[in-house]
Computed example of a mutant assay.
Amino acid sequence: MSRYLLNKFLFMVDRDPELVERYRNEPRELVTWWEAECANTVLNCHTGEASTWLRFDDVEREALATHDHVKLFELGAHPFLTLTLFIAVFERDNTEPLEYQKSYGARLAHFPMPYPDIAT
């Protein structure tokens, strides 16, 4: 398991409107593509440097592919990164102000404090 890789995915997808739309409409395909093409790139590096060992495990891959923010939180994904991406993906489906944000919080309400460690 790699919290770094989960957070990198959330960060990178959230900052690209095209990737946000792909994640909304074809999440499994985007996760597969991103893992193959972007997971091993060096974040914010434009020199072509890359590693070869970063991969999602099956649980991470499934949580990302099913938009399961509760499982991602359990796995240590940063809740602000998850929330901002999922707002971009799902907020348009709601009619009330902050409806998605309230739903997001309610689904995490069963977690006792302190929350799982989100350090990478």
Rank of each mutant, 00 (worst) to 15 (best):
L75H: 04
P17S: 11
L30T: 04
A106F: 09
N94I: 10
S2Q: 10
L72Y: 05
E29A: 12
S103G: 10
P17F: 10
H78A: 13
Q101I: 14
W53Q: 07
N25D: 13
S2W: 02
W34R: 04
A65T: 02
L10W: 01
F86D: 02
R15I: 04
R15W: 03
D14E: 11
A109N: 04
Q101G: 04
Q101V: 14
P112H: 10
F9N: 00
H67E: 03
K102W: 12
L108T: 01
D16N: 07
W53T: 12
P112W: 05
N25Q: 14
A63F: 08
R3P: 00
Y115P: 00
T32G: 04
E74V: 05
Y100W: 14
C38Y: 15
L30A: 04
N7F: 03
P79N: 08
A36H: 10
N25G: 12
M12F: 06
F80L: 15
L64H: 05
D117W: 02
N44P: 00
S2N: 04
D68Q: 02
L5N: 01
V42R: 10
E26Y: 14
T95G: 08
M1Y: 05
T52K: 11
P114K: 09
F11A: 09
F9K: 01
T84A: 08
V13N: 01
W33K: 07
I87C: 11
G48R: 06
D57F: 07
F56A: 13
V59E: 14
H69Y: 14
K8R: 07
G48W: 03
W34Q: 03
A106L: 14
D117L: 10
F86H: 09
R3C: 03
P112G: 06
N40P: 00
V13G: 01
N94G: 12
K102M: 13
T82Y: 03
A77V: 05
E60I: 05
M113A: 12
Q101F: 11
N7G: 01
L75A: 06
A119K: 11
G105Y: 12
D58V: 07
R61M: 13
T32N: 11
R3H: 01
T84S: 11
H78Q: 12
V89N: 00
R24V: 08
K102H: 14
L64D: 02
R22K: 11
T41D: 13
F80H: 10
L98T: 07
D68F: 05
E96K: 13
P114H: 12
P17I: 13
L64T: 02
N94C: 15
